[in-house]
Design a protein around this nucleic acid. Sequence first.
DNA 1: TAATGTGAAGCCTTTCACAGCA
DNA 2: TGCTGTGAAAGGCTTCACATTA
Lengths: 212, 212
Amino acid sequence: MKYHKIPDEAVRRLPFYLRGLLPLSEQGRKNISSHDLAYLLGFNHWQIRKDFSYFGSFGTPGMGYNIEKLIRQIRKILKLNVVRKAALVGVGNLGLAVLRYPGFRIYGFEVAAAFDNDPKKIGRKIGNITVEDVSNLRTLQKRKIDFGIITVPCEAAQQTFDALVRAGVKGILSFSPCHKTGPEKVKVITIDIAMDLVRLPYYTPASRAAKG
Amino acid sequence: MKYHKIPDEAVRRLPFYLRGLLPLSEQGRKNISSHDLAYLLGFNHWQIRKDFSYFGSFGTPGMGYNIEKLIRQIRKILKLNVVRKAALVGVGNLGLAVLRYPGFRIYGFEVAAAFDNDPKKIGRKIGNITVEDVSNLRTLQKRKIDFGIITVPCEAAQQTFDALVRAGVKGILSFSPCHKTGPEKVKVITIDIAMDLVRLPYYTPASRAAKG
DNA sequence: TAATGTGAAGCCTTTCACAGCA
DNA sequence: TGCTGTGAAAGGCTTCACATTA
């Protein structure tokens, strides 16, 4: 392994590899080749090898990859070798959906706190999380919660964003496109449902009527 | 404008431009330069011009772009010049969040139907949409609903995906990574909340403890 | 003058081909 | 022989610089 600037796209694929590997590990399987893993996930085998090669040499020629070891390595690369905690702000439908989503745990992630500014919601329990007033955001650092999830309506997005940054989080997953993401040192990943939906028609072939 | 293979990334940015332009249009503003639009959205002015140039020449040197005209052009490119309809399958928290999300309309998109297989949910009204049994999916084509949104739990994702494809949709927005997306002619965009959240730690600097 | 539109350069990512190892 | 790891080629996207146009 030589020095390479690691493509962001390679990092983006690592969780996919993890998702594919974890069930295999549970089934007790020991090894897998890049070819088989690629088939399983719908990737190319050379891309999988290349991606891993950016981070080190994890396989054995002729044998493939030891699944347990590979999982450990990917966890380490993604800094998921300790449980990471996130705070969610905005307990509406979307917030509830995220809070109840069971899929974070397998990666070693935990949504550990929830905040809202609606007195009717504060105090409510979702699973083992009690909704807190947003003013409590300042306690995040003390509680070792390093990540924020924004699920508030558009109007409240900017102030929520600022509050999370002030609270000292290191990264934010935002479901709102309604805040500026300045040149902060906080990594922000934005998901905009509408924008993803809206570009589907572009990819559809012309209608039959138009074609005659 | 010469022939160019249009970058997918350029298509992905078009809805952003639309989002920036629509409020300006409502405010009655007539023109905007690529420089000002870039500043507004946090892009580069040359990228905006380049993106537009893939599709045509919409501006006037010395003047900038006519906002109304530009909006029409982008709508046309994205095939949003007529209202597009989507059907949502899976009326859980996430499904409700999507159904109640007000942000589709400005783009000319409408979530026009909702389906579930839970008898307790069928018949329920959300806004002006009544939840239907999934067996009704076969009526989509007749109802001019060309797009599907998958918000079901992981276990049901594959069968929902197949049902939507059988129902003749042209594109699918899926919130589940739990289905194969074969080499179908149906465009699929997948959003996986967990995978986006999970790669945030990668981008955080090493902890203070580790640095001494 | 002020701003667009675009060829070309530069950069990043994917794909290829194969050396090297078990 | 089978499979990994990786330089190098190919491809795609972004950035630049400037000719061009109102």
